[in-house]
Design a protein around this nucleic acid. Sequence first.
DNA 1: TGACATTATAATATTAGCTTATAATTCAGT
DNA 2: ACTGAATTATAAGCTAATATTATAATGTCA
Lengths: 284, 284
Amino acid sequence: MLLSIKNLQYLVALKETLHFAKASKKCFVSQSTLSTGIAKLERDLQTVLVERNNKTVTFTSMGNKIVLQARRVIASSDDLINMAMTNFLESEIVVGTIPTISAYLLPDFLKKIEKEFPKLKISFVEDTSENLLKKLKQNQIDFAIFAFPYDLPNGVEGHELFSDSLHLIRHKKRVNHSIDEGQLLLLEQGHCLRSHIMQGYSISNEQISDFSCSSISTLIAMINMDIGISFLPKIALDAGVLSSYPNIVIEPSYMASRGIGVIYKKNNHQAESIKTIANSLLPV
Amino acid sequence: MLLSIKNLQYLVALKETLHFAKASKKCFVSQSTLSTGIAKLERDLQTVLVERNNKTVTFTSMGNKIVLQARRVIASSDDLINMAMTNFLESEIVVGTIPTISAYLLPDFLKKIEKEFPKLKISFVEDTSENLLKKLKQNQIDFAIFAFPYDLPNGVEGHELFSDSLHLIRHKKRVNHSIDEGQLLLLEQGHCLRSHIMQGYSISNEQISDFSCSSISTLIAMINMDIGISFLPKIALDAGVLSSYPNIVIEPSYMASRGIGVIYKKNNHQAESIKTIANSLLPV
DNA sequence: TGACATTATAATATTAGCTTATAATTCAGT
DNA sequence: ACTGAATTATAAGCTAATATTATAATGTCA
């Protein structure tokens, strides 16, 4: 069986006024409409809810119980409407990030968000670019913080915010600064930083070391042991990842870069809000 | 604004099937109906809830939130329907009682109820007959345990269950057993037992003592001091109210009685259930 | 009993919702 | 880029629900 919320509202209004005509005014309908609405409710529920005569309207004990529950139904329907009406900038959102960004940008990002959008609640999902795109397609995330260039699939739009230069790092005792065969240490396949470095510096497969790392911190540890050389994004350097590695130096002559920005679905009505939020990723 | 629960059900069905045609079958409507239903929801809420193409149906993050809330709305509407459908004998009811009955009948009554109607939850309201009638009219109580005869107002029906004889009690040292002037002790005005005794034994105002009691226990205490004589209902005697008063004796020659039963509204659809419950008042 | 206030109902109009049939869309494969 | 298959959206027409106004029925109180 199926009730109409409208009729429940008629019942609640009747409870509040104990008068059909007054209740009907409250609901902006005629007395007749309210009367038949209540009658329909009673017919549907097969229960007498209200005793009425020309002088008084009295709710039966069942009527009183039903009114309480009707208020709950109406309230949760109102909640639904409010949920739909809430501003994106004051809602709960899920944001995707890639490992080579999150640790360096999120702390500042969150600080700024908290200040600028105090009602916005963000949770993060860290994954590879590829998996984030899948999650975006399935709407498991609202948008993702991404590194560019990236060959975005149809339906996904990118918005680049700033450029993040990729700097060569090496042990200070290493004499040969060129990227010789097998000397370049990179993150393992799937990390977009790996491809960005290869593209940015036209790296051939022969130059890459057989070793690969699953995180930037292990990569740095290997450079510290002078196993090879590598490139680090400026946001990592700025975040001080080398501060406890005095033996690692940054070579200034290499200046390729990747872009940092956000991706979101092309049809997303909240695109402007997403860009607004994304602005908080910009360095100070 | 006003939503229809039906459309919310369409949305939930779509979430479960991720396919308009399948969802429409679940709801026993055509694909077109479900399609327009979802469209109406989105129009009303001014939000995109579902992304659809010829291959896949994907819920937006807002869509997912709305579905969760829609399930709550539907659940509380179902709760309402279930409340209306529940059997009176398995519901929560409020029963009125009068002071000259409750202490003597309710203990056994409750024991029997618990056994025969384990799901029935009873709470009691003790008041004078007059006030109980008011509460009955306003549906604050479902029915009342009453003493008869009583001049019931229009709209209230009585159902007498058994007869409760009224026995004269006196101090054993009292020689004169007749009800002389000022010797009859009664409960104060408002207690129907007072009127029942007066009617049953054709008492004149002169016979009544100037003292009056607010409870049977104080009445007994006064008889014990031989201040006067009185009448007690059999249910009180059976409950052992005189067990600690060896000096009070019961005079068997007086045999008037009041009736014990229930009253309820004439239009009450649960009259039969009330009578069924009332049967548990009968002495074993 | 008659007057009055109130709710119920009848007649009618309007709106919303349903169905069938068909159009429009869009992904996938050639 | 075109085509075909699957799917959703829309149009037309019908039905049922809900609305309104006007009026009848009801019950209380003097």
